[in-house]
């Protein structure tokens, strides 16, 4: 993999006890990278460092081998879609998209670029609409068109879907990914999210941040199946953590901590014993909350009629992650 956007030991010190980094990350040309983490993990700071709104206290950012660490946002040529879109309310859709095109050819060329950018996000002909007349999803697409129109080297998205209602989110995730992949041969993109599903659906690769540190980078499958530590294991997807006797009952080595996904547990004739305390029905399957004999609770995902509340069961693991 040849890195297009390189983040080298970048660091931001807010206070002596609140720091982000040092973080090192390479992002390939055309790759979509998700920065995933809980609030306060430093993911927004990372994005703002990339955009140039914050100045790093250490480290370097390079794009195609050009050092941009000290380049101000206006000359960095990074496009950004803000969490609340930051569309200029006093300008119409066309003027918003046109904003970044100042000095890039005559009026004809600019209009063509505006039309192309709006076409890309399926809003052709919306030039003279007022921003506040648009729905949330349309506003988001205008923000995307505006960021893409000046042909930025890197696209940055801050919580791109958090402003949409849940029903719209899933569809928009797929559309957003298609639109990004449609630009040129795919534009190098970094986006911030605190939702694992969003990161999985939209990102090629995910960087998990926690407390200002990079915990792990990888594809969704790598993070889910081979988490490198307990934080990643529990933050990415649902996870049951077993220690001691319970861990050994599931086949772990001495004193190891094991993580088992709910769908990797199943009811059996023998194994880890417990009592079904709750059953949460989701339609296709059900989550069974089991209280083990050591009073630790864990979840099993199984067929809806696999067990009854109050029933005594035995559980075995089909795949364990040993940490």
């Amino acid at each position: 993999m040849t890195a297009f956007l390189q983040i080298q030991a970048i660091e931001k010190r807010w206070r002596s006890d609140v720091t982000v980094g040092p973080i090192t990350l390479d992002i390939a040309r055309g790759e979509i990278l998700a920065l995933l983490g809980p609030s306060g993990s430093g993911k927004t700071t990372m994005l703002r460092l990339l955009a140039g709104f914050e100045t790093a206290d250490g480290g370097r950012i390079t794009v195609a081998n050009e050092d941009v660490t000290a380049v101000p946002p206006a000359r960095r040529r990074f496009g950004m879609v803000f969490q609340h879109y930051a569309l200029f309310p006093h300008l119409d859709v066309g003027q918003n998209v046109e904003f970044g095109l100042a000095g890039s050819g005559g009026p004809g060329a600019v209009n063509a670029k505006v039309a192309a950018a709006l076409g890309l996000v399926d809003l052709a002909g919306y030039e003279r609409r007022k921003v506040h007349e648009l729905s949330g999803g349309q506003q988001q697409r205008v923000a995307l068109a505006r960021a893409l129109a000046p042909e930025p080297r890197v696209l940055l998205l801050d919580e791109p879907l958090s402003n949409l209602d849940p029903a719209l989110r899933e569809r928009t995730r797929r559309e957003l990914r298609q639109m990004i992949k449609r630009v040129g041969e795919g534009i190098t993109t970094v986006f911030v999210t605190h939702e694992q599903e969003e990161a999985f659906d939209l990102g090629d690769r995910i960087a998990v941040l926690n407390n200002g540190r990079l915990e792990q980078t990888g594809t969704p499958e790598e993070l889910y199946e081979r988490p490198q530590n307990l934080f990643v294991a529990t933050f990415v997807g649902r996870a049951n953590v077993f220690r001691g006797g319970a861990a050994r009952a599931l086949g772990a080595r001495e004193s190891a901590v094991v993580v088992v996904r709910p769908e990797r547990l199943r009811f059996a004739g023998a194994g880890l014993p417990g009592v079904v305390r709750e059953r949460r029905y989701t339609g296709a399957a059900a989550f069974f909350l089991i209280e083990g004999d050591d009073h630790d609770r864990f979840e099993v995902l199984a067929e809806p009629d696999a067990a009854q509340v109050g029933e005594r069961v035995y559980v075995e693991a089909t795949r364990v992650i040993t940490l």
Binding site: P73, G79, M80, F88, F99, A102, R146, A147, L156
Partner: peptide, 15 residues
């Protein structure tokens, strides 16, 4: 005034 409006202008190349 939402500061991200000014940041948006900057990221679009406005001085």
């Amino acid at each position: 005034l939402d500061p991200s409006l000014e940041e948006a202008a900057a990221s679009l190349g406005a001085g």
